[in-house]
Simulated scan of single mutants.
Amino acid sequence: MKDAETIGAFIAVLMLACAAAGPGHAQDAEHGKAVFKGCATCHTTDHANRVGPGLKEVVGRKAGTVPGFRYSNAMRNSGIVWDTKTLEAYLESPQTVVPGNSMPYAGLKDATDRTDLVAYLATLK
């Protein structure tokens, strides 16, 4: 009986741990759109350049290639093609991903905000 109690207790603890962890965060592009409002001072959602380049079609685009935007040498020479993983890393710490880039932004520290922002950027087709 003791083994059955031990197994039962283990299963109960395992179930509680799984319930507490919950499902992974589903990307929320609508929330990402709200997060983007903080980016809109420098970036547009079309091809127009401001202080930063326009972000339409950024997912899948080679870094440093928007016509008419003056990129840093670091960005032009980075060799990066923006995918969701690279964008999330860049948004967390731009200077870590592309040292010497000219974006004056310390990074978006909230992982949910980053994931959702990238989901929103992926809709800009």
Rank of each mutant, 00 (worst) to 15 (best):
P53A: 12
Y90H: 01
I7P: 01
A20K: 12
G60F: 11
V35S: 07
P23Y: 08
G107A: 06
L14N: 09
A119M: 06
S78M: 00
H31S: 07
L91H: 02
R50Q: 14
L87K: 00
S78C: 00
E57Y: 03
W82F: 10
E57I: 01
Y120G: 04
G107W: 05
A63L: 11
E57T: 09
E88Q: 15
A26H: 04
S102C: 10
N101V: 02
N49F: 03
C39S: 04
L87A: 00
G38R: 11
T41K: 14
G8F: 07
G22W: 11
A63P: 10
E92T: 04
A111Y: 05
N77Q: 15
A34M: 12
A20I: 13
R114V: 06
G79K: 11
A17S: 13
A63Q: 09
L55G: 03
K62D: 12
G100C: 08
S93E: 06
A29Y: 01
V81E: 02
A21S: 11
V35Q: 09
D28H: 07
L124I: 03
V66Q: 13
S93V: 01
H43M: 01
M15I: 15
N101S: 02
G32W: 02
T115M: 15
F36V: 04
D83W: 13
T41D: 05
P67I: 08
F69E: 07
T123D: 03
N73I: 07
M75W: 07
N101P: 00
G100N: 02
M75V: 15
G79W: 09
T44E: 07
E57N: 15
G68V: 09
K2A: 11
Y90R: 00
K109C: 00
A20M: 14
A119T: 06
D83G: 15
K109N: 04
H47Y: 10
V13E: 07
E92S: 08
Y90G: 00
D113P: 04
H43S: 00
K85W: 00
R114K: 13
K56S: 11
G64I: 03
L16G: 13
V59Q: 01
G32S: 10
W82C: 03
L91W: 02
P104T: 08
R70L: 08
V51L: 15
K33S: 11
G68S: 07
A111D: 11
T115W: 08
R61P: 06
A21G: 12
P67L: 08
A34R: 14
G79C: 12
S93P: 01
D3E: 11
K37V: 07
G52Q: 00
M1H: 02
L108A: 10
V97E: 10
A111I: 09
V13A: 13
V97H: 05
N49P: 02
G60V: 09
